[in-house]
């Protein structure tokens, strides 16, 4: 009889990661790898469903039926992304109810960007262009993440996100080329969303708690600062085409580096919002909790109905075979 030791499992896991093979749900994996993935996927799923709120804020006020349809479809996609991601997390043995409970009790986080308010219609465009743009920059490398179900979910999500990003850009372009009031509305939104979008890549590399281990496990492929720089370089020419200004006097092309230099990010603000002091932290989590609590009777009824009818089906099949 061959005894497979824990060391042998670990060696097989390490070899698979080194060879860029996918780890699948039934494969052995280190507990810390599992925990790290659950944390990251849950945070991602939570961000999708909390992220519905600032945009849903404008569904009932969308200024044309075409824009209303686009926005509703986008918010619906986000609910769909939440579903894929909770399902992907479930393959690691943690169910949606448990993860939602952690969200509702503040034990798991969602992206801090959604703690900023959507004050005008142009914010819908700025979120599409900048926030979805930053998310895509972060997420495209996740399509090659070492954990199979997460990587596959991300392929689908990234396709939809890039569609949203183009829609946001097009919305801003329409405003920028519209009336002076519309142009000002677009500029104001970009002024407010630019810096928080840069913060979406997380703290600088030397201050990032989970980065090194995630890189070694190939959950993460590029550092926070690398991705942030890539995003800035993409946005600068796009802002020019939009006819809008990015609110950073230090933003300029650096010939030597082959990248744009940009100003210092206010990490004190980032930490403050993360701690719960952003403009909408309480509002977002309260709405989520309220929806969950007010929906409890619906979920209970569905479960009760399913139980009753499963029992009935069981009785029928027993009678049929008797």
């Amino acid at each position: 009889m061959t005894v497979v030791t824990a060391d042998a499992y670990e060696a097989a896991f390490d070899a698979a990661v080194a060879a860029d093979e996918r780890i699948e749900p039934r494969d052995w994996m280190p507990e810390a790898y599992r925990a790290s993935l659950v944390r990251q996927m849950a945070q991602h799923a939570h961000s999708e469903i909390i992220g519905m709120q600032p945009e849903a804020n404008w569904i009932t006020r969308a200024p044309s039926l075409r824009r209303k349809a686009i926005l509703m479809a986008k918010v619906q996609d986000e609910a769909g992304h939440g579903l894929y991601l909770y399902s992907a997390a479930e393959t690691l043995g943690t169910g949606r109810d448990e993860l939602l409970d952690k969200l509702h009790t503040g034990r798991q986080k969602y992206s801090s960007i959604f703690n900023y308010p959507t004050l005008t219609w142009a914010d819908v465009g700025a979120i599409g262009w900048l926030v979805d743009g930053a998310a895509i920059t972060n997420q495209v490398p996740l399509c090659r993440c070492s954990y199979g179900p997460y990587a596959r979910a991300m392929v689908r999500i990234c396709k939809e996100e890039s569609f949203h990003q183009r829609q946001g850009y097009e919305l801003l372009l329409t405003l920028s080329r519209g009336t002076p009031e519309q142009h000002a509305m677009a500029q104001d939104a970009v002024d407010r969303w630019w810096w928080p979008s840069l913060m979406m890549f997380g703290p600088p590399d030397d201050a990032s708690a989970h980065s090194a281990q995630s890189m070694a496990w190939k959950i993460k492929r590029h550092s926070n600062d690398e991705l942030r720089q890539r995003f800035v370089d993409i946005c600068v020419p796009q802002a020019q085409s939009l006819g809008l200004t990015l609110p950073d006097p230090d933003l300029r092309w650096n010939e030597e580096r082959g990248h744009h230099d940009f100003g210092a990010i206010d990490w004190a603000e980032f930490q403050d919002v993360l701690k719960g002091n952003g403009p909408c932290n309480e509002q977002r989590i309260n709405q989520r909790r309220r929806a969950h609590e007010e929906g409890a009777w619906v979920r209970d009824a569905a479960a009760a109905y399913a139980d009753k009818h499963q029992a009935a089906l069981h009785t029928e099949s027993v009678e049929a075979t008797a």
Partner: peptide, 26 residues
């Protein structure tokens, strides 16, 4: 139906109610 976005009792209903709203809007 669009007013439900972000308020539905379960995630599947976020998708379903939005779907119906989008059909009707079309």
């Amino acid at each position: 139906l669009g007013e439900w976005a972000g308020h539905a009792p379960v995630l599947e209903e976020e998708v379903a109610l939005a779907n119906i709203a989008l059909d009707l809007l079309g």
